[in-house]
Simulated assay, not measured.
Amino acid sequence: MKNRILIVEDDADIASVLQDYLRHAGYETEHAADGRTGLARILAAPPDLTLLDLMLPELDGLGVLRGARARTNHPIILLTARIEEVDRLVGLELGADDYICKPFSPREVVARVRAVLRRASPSAPADLAESALVLDEDQWQASIQGTPLQLTRREFRLLQALARHPGRIFSRGQLLELAYEPSDDVTERAVDSHIKNLRRKLAAAAPTHDWIRSVYGVGFSFEAPEG
């Protein structure tokens, strides 16, 4: 059975292009041109995934997101031309699963839809990351398919925080709270430095996979390998 994708987008040209690409990728699609209509369709019959624009008539995207999350946990990806970090963080804190900025490539949208649906599918393996990545909390050691990563304690805790929730996007502030002690004298700039070191060590052990994804203006997510 095909996954059903709801596109809530007031720009008819963008909606039409997205529908064409998604249908070509094997998905069923439907379109709502304003926020109230989109929310009504979500509440009446939640789709498998919603692509939700933030700038909508009648009811904006954050209003739709709030209303949807009160009734359903189905995946929602935000689409927006807004670049302010606060908009991104508010959307993610309300329960968005991903965030794509305009202008975007339709192929990128299809790829993100596929990735989010794969993570949300109950039939998908739940421990893809664990099958390759091993975190030994007692010894503060990490390895990928038997190859030690030689992480510092701070790098280990940062990787641990990310890997516990594959696909979830964490802001730098959230990572500071999760991966560092209150007594640590670190800033959000230090998070970037530690992420850079983690990427280098992960790439050395498994160069064919990009383990940590940067989301511009938002933060970082851990990406489990595909099978």
Rank of each mutant, 00 (worst) to 15 (best):
E181C: 09
A204L: 12
E58F: 06
D138S: 13
S143K: 10
N73I: 10
A190V: 12
R112D: 06
G167R: 03
I100V: 13
D98Y: 08
M55Y: 07
R66S: 13
P106M: 01
D48F: 02
G167C: 08
K102I: 05
L56R: 00
V109A: 03
A161T: 09
A45S: 15
R66I: 13
S16R: 10
T187N: 14
L128D: 13
L159G: 01
A204W: 07
A70K: 13
V134L: 12
I169L: 14
P166R: 03
P125S: 10
P103C: 08
D210R: 12
S221M: 12
P125C: 07
P166G: 02
Q145C: 14
R118M: 12
L79R: 02
K102D: 06
G35V: 05
G67Y: 04
R172W: 03
Y216V: 14
F170G: 01
V109P: 00
A40P: 00
A142S: 06
V218Y: 09
S183P: 00
V113R: 05
V110Y: 01
T147V: 15
W211S: 02
A96H: 01
R168V: 08
Q145S: 15
A203H: 13
G173Q: 11
V110F: 06
D87M: 06
P46N: 07
T152L: 10
V17G: 03
L176C: 05
H194R: 08
A25V: 05
V218E: 03
K201H: 10
V191G: 00
G26S: 05
A70V: 10
I42V: 08
L162C: 05
A45T: 12
L39F: 01
S105N: 14
G61D: 02
N3C: 01
A40S: 10
L202Y: 03
H74Q: 15
I212E: 04
V215F: 00
S193D: 14
V191M: 01
L62D: 08
A206D: 15
T72L: 09
G38Q: 01
A33P: 03
R157A: 09
Y99M: 08
P46S: 07
P47R: 06
D192K: 14
N73H: 13
G227D: 14
I77G: 00
R119E: 12
R69P: 10
V218A: 12
V8T: 02
R153H: 15
E223L: 12
P106W: 00
D97A: 09
F220I: 01
D192E: 14
T37H: 00
V215Q: 10
G219E: 01
G63A: 12
H165I: 11
L92K: 05
G61W: 08
S214V: 10
T152C: 06
D210F: 08
E108N: 08
